[in-house]
Structure formats: C-alpha cells, structure tokens
C-alpha cells in the first residue's frame, strides 16, 4: 500500500535569501534545475518579507501591552535587574508604537503540496515541501532545524552562509525523511 503522506523536499535559505541546501526525498514535485531552485529561493525570501508588511490584523490594544510587562516584572521581582524594565515599557507607551513583530509565511497550501516554512531566530529559513495530508509538519521541520544545528553549525569546517556540504547532515536528514 502506498502512503500518501510524503515529504517531497527540503530547502534551506540563508538570511540573505541565498539557497544553501536543497534535497529531494520523493518524486512528486516537478523537476527543477539548480538555477530555478535559486530563483525560487530568492523569490520566496522576498515574498516572505512582503507578507510581513501586509499584515492587516489590528494590533492588540496598547493598554494591555503596557500593563503586561509591569505585571510580569511583579511576578518575578528578584530575577529582573533594575535598568532594563523601563526601556521596554517606555517604547510600549510611546504613541508612535511599532507594530508587533510578525512572522511572515508559516505555511502555504496548494492543491498538490504544502509548504511549511520555519524561520530560525537568526533568519535562516527551512522550507519543507510535503503532501497536503502529511501531519505534524511543524515538528518535522523543527527536527530538521535541530539537525542543522547539530551537524552543520557545530561542524568547524563549515563556513557560514555557504552551501551545506556536510556528509553527516546528509545522512541524518536522509535517515529521518526518506521513507523505507
């Protein structure tokens, strides 16, 4: 019996929008050449940024945001040092308040596949292409992030922002995502 739950591909985009890793695990997506993948990564990087700026949701009421930090500091009186708390509260109370930080595209659905995007705090994006039926894609993509941390970032011979050519990472990702 053929399962319909498949991971098609994994792409890693560095913080400048360059493609540093691509690997296909199962057929199902169209075959693209490496140049097309590079263009795709750059395009997605741009759209991700735009999707943050077109956020139509009204910001949460400012009164609650100004109250929250004070209540949280009250609950942890000994832990927070004195100087930092005034700074965030003053920016929150500022009339020209900034919009809260938005995440950008987290998941995209089309009729043939689903794309789950995970952005690390340092701006590296993990794009996981799966079939629409695949559950728990956010867990899978986080696991890939952990592997990247373990095998790529801890590799002393890896230079930052460069294409990932790490054999251990290849093996780990393959063992995790390729179906037997």
């Amino acid at each position: 019996m053929i399962s319909t739950r498949v991971v098609f591909a994994l792409l890693i985009i560095n913080k400048a929008g360059g493609l540093i890793y691509t690997r296909t695990f199962a057929p199902g997506l169209q075959r693209l050449d490496s140049n097309d993948y590079l263009i795709l990564a750059g395009t997605f990087h741009g759209i991700h940024a735009i999707s943050r700026s077109i956020n139509p949701a009204p910001p949460p009421p400012s009164s609650t945001t100004t109250n929250n930090p004070s209540s949280s500091t009250n609950s942890l009186p000994t832990h927070t040092p004195a100087p930092p708390p005034p700074a965030p509260s003053s920016t929150a109370g500022n009339p020209t308040r900034k919009r809260p930080h938005t995440t950008g595209i987290e998941s995209l659905e089309s009729s043939h596949f689903r794309l789950t995007c995970f952005q690390s705090p340092t701006g590296v994006k993990f794009l996981l292409f799966t079939s629409p039926e695949q559950p728990n894609t956010d867990v899978v993509v986080r696991r890939c992030y952990e592997m990247y941390g373990d095998y790529v970032m801890k590799n002393p011979f890896y230079s930052l922002e460069m294409p990932v050519r790490v054999e251990k990472f290849e093996r780990a990702v393959g063992g995790y995502l390729v179906r037997p």
Partner: peptide, 27 residues
C-alpha cells in the same frame, strides 16, 4: 505576493496546480 506564489506553485506542482492559501501567525 499572490502572483508570485501562484507562479511558484505552478512551477513546482505542475501546470494544473493551484495556489490555495498561506498562513502567518497573524493572518
């Protein structure tokens, strides 16, 4: 955004693939 994503979906999923929706944490 919609135009680029639609093109991206077509490129990856084939000509009959349709872009349906995307989700961020806010909308």
């Amino acid at each position: 955004t919609v135009f680029s994503l639609r093109r991206m979906c077509r490129q990856l999923g084939g000509v009959d693939d349709q872009f349906l929706s995307y989700r961020t944490a806010e909308y």
